[in-house]
Design a protein around this nucleic acid. Sequence first.
RNA 1: GCGCCUGUAGCUCAGUUGGAUAGAGCAACGGAUUUCUAAUCCGUCGGUCGCAGGUUCGAUUCCUGCCAGGCGCGCCA
Length: 687
Amino acid sequence: MTSFQEYRERLLGILLELAPGSEGETERSMPEHAMDPAQGPSEEFDPGRGAPAGLYPGIAFTRPPKPEMGDLALPAFPIAKRLGQPPPAIAARWAEAVRAELEQPGGRLAGRLASLDVPITRAQPAGPYLNITLDPAAMARLVTAAVVERGELYGHAPHPTGQTVMVEYSSPNTNKPLHLGHIRNGLLGMGISNLLEAAGDRVIRVSLVNDRGIHICKSMLAYQRWGATAEGRETPASTGEKGDHFVGRYYVLFYNKQMEEQAAYASAQGIDPARFSKSALKGITDADERKAREAEAERFEKAFMEASELQAALGAMLRSWEAGDPDVLDLWRTMNDWVYEGFRTSYDRLGFLFDKWYFESDTWQAGKAEVERGLAAGVFYRNADGSTWARLEPLGLQDKVVLRADGTTVYITQDISTTIRKFEDYRMDRSLYVVAAEQDVHFRNLFAILGLLGHELAGRCAHVSYAMINLARGLGKLKSREGTKVDADNLLDDLHAMAKAKIIEAGHTETLDAIDATAEQIGQGALKLYLLQVNPEKTIVFDPEQTIAFAGDTGPAVQYSHARIHGIVRKGLAAGKLTVEELEADGFLRADRVDAGLLTEPEERDVLRLLAEFPDTVMAAARQLSPAPVANALLELTKAYARMYHQHEVLKAEAPILRARVQLALCTAQVLRNGLRLLTIEAPERM
RNA sequence: GCGCCUGUAGCUCAGUUGGAUAGAGCAACGGAUUUCUAAUCCGUCGGUCGCAGGUUCGAUUCCUGCCAGGCGCGCCA
């Protein structure tokens, strides 16, 4: 069984042998690319390797701009450059050589061209390109057979790479519920993990929970002070809230109380805090004046923090926690358990999976030991005030605190030891951190510090950065404490309701026995494909009303195509156009009942081409560590399929064509399903 | 001020290690089908690829500078 990719590589090799100048030029062209030390490191982690390294490295098939020009194109530029001749002349000579071989199969290549699974029917020069047209019937047979044979693995690399990659994502805080930003993060993490697996890597999915630190103490302190009701302390069970929302409410409460405290402090000092608001600062046009005001704001903030009773209590609580105070630890465990229960519910709903959970509370102390090592090694130094710093200036970064003056750890301290722990646990070849771009500097610092400490693993770590989601209409950044976040659970509920309303409106309630399950799949499909079709480095502007839609380039449109294909098969069976005996267990038609060679309509060939290229897209996406190419390929396939079935009726066609079209539809459904699964989106069979 | 990211049609985005005439969706307008599920299809309209240089046979893509927006430059995480 040959895949289109294997076929194409074989064809490329043969065509290059027929290229002008190939006999004399090969020896000279080999060495310069054969050993390029600069390529070494990137090669090691490149999941999409296997590009044809022929006689002319760097030459590869492209696609002609119009289908009638051919199926594949080779640019003649590299050869033209080497031979010092104009590209069109090269292309013309090349095409002539290919034609001669086609007409006399016993020639130079001993009939290799003629023995290909898919014969060439035309080789034509077009300007600087050699355009190749393939036999459509053979092409259709090859592509459908590949999809049928590989089934749910179509798009996956045929061989494992032997590489193990860890992907960390989600990484929530235990004091606030998940918001839209976490969904983007989780989708990227899941998508990248799925893609690397498809490329043949072994992937370990981990979540690192931020379950300790001064910010966690905020919800704890708030609960300790204001969590009592007449009936005693309230709990998620007593209020009926989801655990993470319950704790998040106390986090917001702390914030609000501290704002009150700040207002009181300001008025006692005779200061108007409105002077320091974002809008007030923005309103100052004079640069010097604004700088002065910002400095003033900073001084005020610092003075308040020093005077704040809440801040002092927070610091005391953190020290108690680090000292192992049983009461504080008890409260901490109780509240964290509430949060985890809430998280579990949300992750299950979204389909996010993890192989391993790391908790900063388990690793932070080992970070202190690493700090001691760094001090001993002279890569860290202690400041006069007692704080400990990593010397990063020689590396072009700024020195970084690794231990506070009071001896407590900071964020990066525990990340040092967590990273080491991860490598001890899994000995992976590579460790990826899917974390927002706000933390670019943090990861540069982290990897630099690990390197300074002499850890070889530093070179195996990489930060997969992505941009944040902004809200349309000036709602601002998705931060939870201001209360302007887009809460994940609420958003999913809204989408579910919208999808359900649409099902009811369309009158599909009678054919659907699981309306709620389907509505959930569609609502999530809309959100997930919307978020995944844009490249990670791009900021997403989120407008719930305008951007989550069910028509056009959307998840539901992809799901709809998938559902309709199943509808056609159901209808074909019901109408006696197809029989159950013809269907294999995997859902495809039996090979001896189908001749895909009958699929020669232009719209059918468009679909076949996209099916053929799907594995390329998956590999490219894995290489780019971005699910976006897959999302966009699915949308393209969906549109091509919709055009096709609109123009060429399946069930009313003559029996042989009917079966060929059903098989093509089934292949399309398979690829849509495979792609959607890479994106953590479900593919309903009815909607 | 310094660093990173982004800038493509009115809006939201694609654009495959630099390749042929830069593509979708939405919106607007006009059409198709008493359906193989209208969550569909066809057509029209819409572009100085932020600006200016440079490298190249060839630049939306690579380099430099500038402009605009975002993020970061915490003993927060």
